[in-house]
């Protein structure tokens, strides 16, 4: 326990505290010029401490102080009705629904592609290079077009956003699963051969179990990517609902505190999703009889 305290908790807390202190200093430095201007016009002279306090309580600061963001976040998360347009839970739920839908599609598609690539030589030689190349392409640039074109055809709402998430999340899963399905060593494959196992048996009894750790590792990457896809997908819809639209409307009206609170909400969702996938991975491995390495 003391080891854990010394090796992890104290250093992390210290760094976080340093970040918060730097944040306060930054918010004083960035808000001070505007506050000085305000004071001069109002003809107010304030003591140093009053001035510092004022820079930390502007309604639309350049850089909101951490406590302003925290208050806004807590207020909009816990003290609003869920149907309210200001409730962060509502916006997070909108983003979460398209993230999860897109992630599910993407994972299924990625696994299917990986299974095909591992079993068909033609696809391995022709499709795999494209999957790798596609990782070098800024796919997110497609997002506005997908949304607008699908809206022109009459498809709006959840599906277009989920498609962007699907698109972002299936690459990591496909690449990870190809690696995983190929991870059994030659000796293991030879052993299956001596058992006279059919290709189906080799697949289900050797390749699939061997690929599970790879699957969950790449699913963690995929779920983070699909959240980014959902947030960017909300931008061109004209700020209706979701964390992305909250950011956009915040930037229209320079409501920095709202924007930071939305960012915090997005980060909380990301951490929750990644840890859920990690937890599912650990449970699956335990159920399958894996031993902690």
């Amino acid at each position: 326990m003391t080891d854990r305290l010394r090796d992890k908790i104290i250093p992390v807390t210290a760094i976080l505290a340093a970040i918060v202190v730097a944040w306060y200093a930054g918010s004083y430095a960035m808000n001070a010029p505007f506050q000085r201007d305000l004071d001069r016009r109002a003809g107010v002279t304030s003591t140093t401490w009053e001035f510092v306090a004022k820079t930390m309580s502007q309604p639309k600061p350049t850089l909101p102080a951490p406590h302003q963001v925290a208050v806004n976040f807590v207020e909009n998360t816990f003290f609003r009705k869920l149907s309210s347009n200001r409730s962060l839970v509502y916006h997070a739920a909108v983003t979460l629904s398209s993230t999860v839908l897109g992630f599910a599609f993407g994972t299924i598609l990625g696994i299917a592609i990986a299974v095909c690539i591992v079993h068909v030589v033609t696809l391995d030689r022709s499709l795999m290079p494209w999957i790798i190349t596609s990782q070098t392409i800024p796919i997110l640039a497609l997002a506005p077009m997908i949304i607008v074109v699908l809206a022109a055809v009459g498809i709006t709402g959840l599906i277009p956003k989920a498609l962007i998430s699907t698109y972002l999340s299936f690459f990591p899963v496909a690449v990870g699963m190809v690696k995983g399905l190929r991870s059994p060593e030659l000796t293991h494959l030879d052993l299956m051969h001596t058992y006279h196992a059919s290709p189906g048996q080799v697949f289900w009894k050797l390749r699939v179990p061997a690929s599970v750790p790879f699957l969950f590792a790449s699913m963690k990457v995929a779920v983070a990517a699909s959240l980014v896809g959902a947030i960017v997908g909300e931008l061109p819809t004209g700020a209706v609902a979701g964390i992305g639209s909250k950011l956009l409307s915040g930037s229209y009206y320079s409501q920095t505190i709202d924007m930071f609170a939305a960012l915090v909400a997005g980060s909380v969702v990301a951490v929750l999703l990644v840890s859920l996938v990690g937890l599912a991975g650990r449970i699956t491995e335990r159920v399958m009889g894996g031993r902690p390495a």
Binding site: D7, K8, P11, V12, T13, A14, I15, L16, M30, T62, L63, L140, K220, A224, L227, V228, I231, V232, I243, G244, L247, L248, G250, S251, S254, T256, M259, F260, A262, L263, G266, S267, A270, V271, V274
Partner: peptide
């Protein structure tokens, strides 16, 4: 060592966050 122990967990966590969301704030600044 101290810095590494403090920064690594934070760095690993940040890689999962939707950092792209800072874009509007940077445009404002």
């Amino acid at each position: 060592m101290f810095l590494r122990r403090g920064l690594m967990p934070i760095g690993n966590m940040v890689s999962a966050l939707p950092i792209i969301g800072v874009a509007p704030i940077m445009v404002m600044w």
